[in-house]
Structure formats: structure tokens, C-alpha cells
Design a protein around this nucleic acid. Structure first.
Length: 599
RNA sequence: GGCGAGGUAGCUCAGUGGUAGAGCAGGGGACUCAUAAGCCCUUGGUCGAGAGUUCGAAUCUCUCCCUCGCCA
């Protein structure tokens, strides 16, 4: 029976381009996992979108003198371009700046309020008389009260690195006009996390046995040592989702509170545009559905604690408010396989210093599958990993090209040349043939189990190992010698090797979809392994937003061993991957740290 | 300072009680279908330090050192 798998992917903040660290942290593992489940025949719903709200975006917009919406739209378009080029198959990649998302977020707010999990409290916040508005911490500068640095930001000091309490800044001034702000009282809604703590702890304990230790121990440790405290969920801003309470028109929902709701609102939006408004329930209210949240470690608190707290707090009330009828409560996360960070040449990736490799930039010079390969084989699943250009070239040449690409190429070209462009007719299988087929077929189980457990690195390693087994088999059988004296025997060997490669193509497909597709076509199949991506523009009363979508179409890829038939016509084989010159490592390193042209 | 993660071969990392592993790099060999790829053999580690539990510890406990992250 097919399972319902919700693949919930981190929402990129739409004020900067996506770099390889972001990709390996969440977007790529999500796609690999989703592709595997699609091949398995499960019902996958992979959703995400641009995080359009919040002060980083308004700060950037103010600096450029353009509306916040323009900044978000620009990066949103670039995200979609990258995801198409890299083949990240979102069922829906949308945005938080939609009417639907606002409605869902407001319903969650109201459900929490009705269930008694919200309260209001007065805070002191900087207010600018000249600008006539409250200023978020990022809009304040002043002298750091820890190190005395003159140009500390309101939320953090760039000199000593400490996180600051903006109300303690010495000589505060408004970034916008240099005026001196004053602390003024302002009232905000808070989510009563203290009250929800027992439910969150119970949730975490129930997941403890199979979650990654760094996610669950860290979360439980956090709660054990400091306990959960109320946290504000509204702000004095004008860019964002209005607070659905009379008299609160000039405040907005805090972006941390509303962005995580996107996993739900995007599923609801997807159902709406797919023609079955109720379809999202299969992933959200059916107890047998499983949800996996692919995020970087900086987001663990939001997904392992705060989002579950929101979900626990709304209970069944959400259905009453949002759908106007009674319904079931929403599923809590099944797993949160958060990744650690990827460093760049031993240093932290930094956008402002241009120390990193940006996805779109990379794809101007290299193909998508080598990037997917390197980021997977080097994925920071258990600890921080490091992007090293020499290592990238080595792994591309020694593993991807030599072990796998060359295997496919040597066997296909041998078959193509000696058997008239067709899969040769095998004789009776010998012990070695049976053994190899059995070994490769077992990969559907072993690689599958690893993918299912979100051990993507190990899964890829296992697939590479199996490719090595085929290389060994070929060496033992030496069909290039056998063909001179025993063409029938050589035909059997080549048939078996082709069969193995046809299977390996599927085992590699979640990680290397583009080249697996190429191989698939070389083997003469006409239907594609996967469906296709496309974009659409949707309009609502907040304006227009482009969405990235996915349709299965004619795809027939399936997680099962090859059923290759003798005499199948092959396409002329071409190398799957390019060898890279070692010199490119040095060239690429030179690009690091240079300031880019503003996009 | 608190919490968390990590410290295993030159490099990147697997390995949670039972004779130290993989890939790459280094050395040697046979082969030649293939993107000078693949295959076979091989050098190399007191598993951060010390103590303890155990018949047995990289693996469990304690103390300490180092790196990273979060928080204060």
C-alpha cells in the first residue's frame, strides 16, 4: 500500500541567493528523499516557498530604496531558476506572501487564541518620533555596551560578536535618519510556550528512538535547562501578515511564527490549484501519513519545538476556524533530519564576504549531477562538512567519472559496437552471473533502507560500492578476451553487466536524476524516469506570485531491478560525466572572497 | 559559564562491548573493453589524554584538553 509522505523543505529567506551550504543543508536531501519515495510509488507531497517577510528583507529594500516586495520577488525568481536547473522537484514551491498563507496563518493565530495559548504583554521598544514608527532592532545602531564598539547593530555587535539587547545600547540612533529614538511601550501577543511545554516534551520523547541525536538531545536539553518561555508572535512592522484582531491593524505576525506555517499553507494551496481542495488532508490529518522536515541545524528550535508547539496548541480548533466544521488535529512532525553546516575551504560561508559557492553561479560552469554527487557524498549529516575544490575535482574524477560513468560507458560502447547496437542475447547464466545479479538486486533493499532512514551519504556509498562490484565482475569475465574465442559467453557477460547497470541507474537516480535519465534513454526506454517541473503565475489580492510545480506525466521510473530484454535497440552511448582539470580548483579558489557585481 | 555536537590512517569520514575499517593519496603488479578509466596486492593508526567498569572498551562511566554551534 502506498504511503503518504510529506516532504517539508526549509523556506529560503528571499533576501540572498542560495549557496551550496543551503543546498546540502536542506533542499537537496529533501529532493533525494522525495525522488526515492516517488520511485517507490508512494504519494509524495514536497512543498516549500520563499520566506518573503521579516526585517532582513525590509532592511535590504530600504538600503536599495525599493519596495520590500520587489526584493522578495527578485530572489524568489532566482530560487525557482536554480531549483529547475538543479532538478529539485517541488510539488509546490510558493511564497509566504500569498492570500492563502495569510488566511492559514491567521486561522492558526485565532485557534491558539481560542484555546488559551496566547496572551498579551507590554514591551519597551525603540520608537522614532521623526519617522513616526517603532523600529525593529535591526533598524537601530549605537555603541556596544559590552565592547564599546561605536557601530554596533541593535541585535548584534559586529565587533565582539555578542548578541545584544537593543534597549541597553549606548547612544542609540535610527539607521534611517540618525535621529535619537526613545523607548516606548508597545503591546504584543505572546505564545504561551510554558503551558505547551509538557506536550512538546511528550512529542520529543516519542520521537527519541529514531531522530538524529543532535536534533532530539539538543531540543530536550534546551527545554530541560531553561524551560520554555512565552515568546512574542507579533511585531511593529508594516511588511507582513496582519494580526487578525481589531485594533491591531498596524502590527504584523512575527516572521518566525508565520513562516513555519508555510508547510501547511503550501499543502493547502497545492490542493486548491490541483483541483481537489480537500486533498491536503491525506498528508496532514491522516494519522498514517509521515512528515519529514528538511532543515539546517540553525532551524532546529523552530521545527522541533516551536512548530510542534503551535500544532499541539491549535488541536482540532484549527478545523473549526479554517474550514468552518469540526475536523481532526494536524500531524506533528514524524522526523526532522536536520543537517549540520557546510564550510567553504575551511571557513564559514559568508554572503557579505562572498565566501561561498552560489548555486546559479556554479551551474554556469558545471553540470547539476556532479554538484548533487559531491554535496551528497560530503553531506553534513552528523557533523559539519567542508567544501574543498581539490576534493570536488578528485571525487568527480575518481568516483563519479571513473567508477560509475566509465562503467556505464565501457559496457554500453562494447555492446553497441559488437552486437549491432543491441542488447546481446544471453546464454544460460553461470554462477558468477547469478551472483552479480543477486548482489545488485539486493541494493534495492540496502540502498532503499538507507534512503528511507535519511542516511543519504551511506546510501550513495552503497550504490557506488555496487558499481565497483560490476567493475570487478567485468574484470574477472574479461569479455574483451572472451569475444575472440567464445562470443556467446561474452554476450552473456555483457547482457548481465547491462542488466546491472540498468538497475544501478535506478539506485543512483534519486541523487543523479539527470544522468540516470540519460542512461535510461540510452537503454532505449521512451518513458522518462521522473515527471517534469513547470511554473505558473497565480494571482490573488496580494498580487501575483510565480510557483514552481511538478507533474508526474508519463514517468514510469520504479524502484525495482532491471527487466532488460535481449535485442533491445540501444542509443549510441555518450559519456555521462566530464573529467575536470585539477587546475580548476585553484581558479575557483581565486573567486572566493572577491566582491561580486550586485545582481 | 550552561547546553549540544565533534576529536579514529597523510586527507575526507564509517564504525555504540568481542581480533582497528572504507574511499582518496603513496608503493608494486597483471590486463587493455572504457573518459590513461577499471582490476589485484600493498605501506600506513598507542581510535584527543588519563583513570575506572568488564573476561574483553574506539564503543560504557568519570576527570581533563582541543574544535565548532546555540544560549547566557
Amino acid at each position: 500500500m502506498a504511503d503518504h509522505i510529506l516532504v517539508a523543505v526549509a523556506w529560503p529567506y528571499s533576501n540572498a541567493d542560495i549557496h551550496v551550504g543551503n543546498l546540502t543543508g536542506s533542499y537537496l536531501p529533501a529532493d533525494i528523499f522525495a525522488r526515492y519515495h516517488r520511485l517507490k510509488g508512494n504519494n509524495v507531497l514536497m512543498v516549500s516557498g520563499s520566506d518573503a517577510h521579516g526585517t532582513p528583507i525590509t532592511v535590504k529594500a530600504d538600503a536599495e530604496g525599493v519596495p520590500a516586495e520587489q526584493v522578495y520577488q527578485r530572489y524568489h525568481a532566482r530560487f525557482i531558476e536554480l531549483f529547475q536547473k538543479l532538478g529539485l522537484n517541488y510539488d509546490l514551491f510558493t511564497s509566504t506572501h500569498t492570500e492563502n498563507h495569510a488566511k492559514v496563518s491567521q486561522a492558526i493565530f485565532l485557534a491558539l487564541k481560542e484555546n488559551g495559548y496566547l496572551y498579551t504583554e507590554e514591551q519597551k521598544q525603540w520608537y522614532s518620533e521623526s519617522l513616526k514608527k517603532f523600529l525593529p532592532d535591526r533598524y537601530i545602531e549605537g555603541t556596544c555596551y559590552i565592547c564599546g564598539y561605536d557601530n554596533a547593530r541593535g541585535d548584534q555587535c559586529d565587533n565582539c560578536g555578542n548578541v545584544l539587547d537593543s534597549s541597553q545600547l549606548i547612544n542609540p540612533r535610527a539607521k534611517a535618519d540618525g535621529s535619537t529614538p526613545e523607548l516606548r511601550a508597545t503591546t504584543h501577543y505572546f505564545i504561551d510556550l510554558g503551558k505547551l511545554e509538557p506536550q512538546v516534551v511528550k512529542f520529543l520523547e516519542s520521537r527519541k528512538s529514531y531522530w538524529r541525536p543532535n536534533v532530539v538531545t539538543r531540543s530536550l536539553g534546551w527545554i530541560r535547562t531553561q524551560g520554555l518561555r512565552g515568546r512574542p508572535i507579533t511585531r511593529d512592522l508594516d511588511w507582513g501578515i496582519p494580526v487578525p484582531v481589531e485594533g491591531w491593524e498596524d502590527k504584523r505576525l512575527y516572521v518566525w511564527f508565520e513562516a513555519v506555517i508555510g508547510y501547511l499553507s503550501a499543502a493547502i494551496e497545492w490542493a486548491g490549484i490541483s483541483g481537489d481542495k480537500e486533498a491536503w488532508h491525506s498528508w496532514w490529518t491522516e494519522a498514517s501519513a509521515r512528515s519529514y522536515y528538511f532543515i539546517g541545524k540553525d532551524n532546529i528550535d523552530f521545527h522541533a519545538i516551536l512548530w510542534p508547539a503551535e500544532l499541539a496548541g491549535i488541536g482540532e480548533t484549527f478545523a473549526n476556524i479554517f474550514e468552518g466544521k469540526s475536523g481532526k488535529s494536524l500531524n506533528l512532525p514524524y522526523d526532522v533530519p536536520a543537517n549540520e553546516f557546510l564550510n567553504m575551504e575551511d571557513r564559514k560561508i559568508s554572503g557579505s564576504r562572498n565566501w561561498g559557492v552560489w548555486g546559479l553561479d556554479f551551474l554556469e560552469r558545471y553540470d547539476p549531477d556532479p554538484l548533487r554527487y559531491y554535496l551528497t557524498v560530503n553531506m553534513p549529516e552528523t557533523s559539519d562538512a567542508n567544501w574543498d575544490w581539490d576534493d570536488f575535482v578528485r571525487r568527480n574524477n575518481n568516483e563519479l567519472v571513473a567508477t560509475w560513468g566509465n562503467l556505464a560507458n565501457r559496457v554500453l560502447s562494447f555492446a553497441y559496437r559488437n552486437w549491432d547496437g543491441k542488447v546481446p542475447w544471453p546464454g544460460e547464466l553461470r554462477v558468477a552471473d547469478e551472483t552479480l545479479i543477486k548482489t545488485v538486486d539486493a541494493g534495492f533493499d540496502s540502498v532503499g533502507k538507507l534512503l528511507e532512514g535519511v542516511k543519504l551519504r551511506a546510501a550513495l556509498g552503497e550504490a557506488i560500492r555496487l558499481a565497483g562490484e560490476v567493475n570487478k565482475y567485468l574484470d574477472e569475465q574479461a569479455p574483451w578476451s572472451a569475444i575472440k574465442t567464445d562470443k556467446a559467453g561474452a554476450a552473456t557477460t555483457i547482457f548481465v553487466a547491462l542488466n546491472a547497470i540498468d538497475s544501478l541507474k535506478i539506485l543512483f537516480a534519486p541523487v543523479l536524476p539527470h544522468t540516470s535519465q540519460l542512461l535510461h534513454e540510452t537503454f532505449g526506454y521512451s518513458e522518462p524516469l521522473f515527471g517534469e517541473q513547470y511554473t505558473e503565475t497565480k494571482k490573488d489580492n496580494l498580487g501575483a506570485h510565480t510557483v514552481l510545480r511538478y507533474r508526474t506525466g508519463a514517468a514510469t521510473g520504479s524502484w525495482a531491478p532491471s527487466n532488460l530484454q535481449a535485442r533491445t535497440k540501444l542509443q549510441e552511448p555518450k559519456p555521462l560525466y566530464r573529467k575536470l582539470e585539477p587546475e580548476i580548483a585553484e581558479e575557483e579558489r581565486k573567486r572566493l572572497g572577491n566582491l561580486r557585481e550586485a545582481e
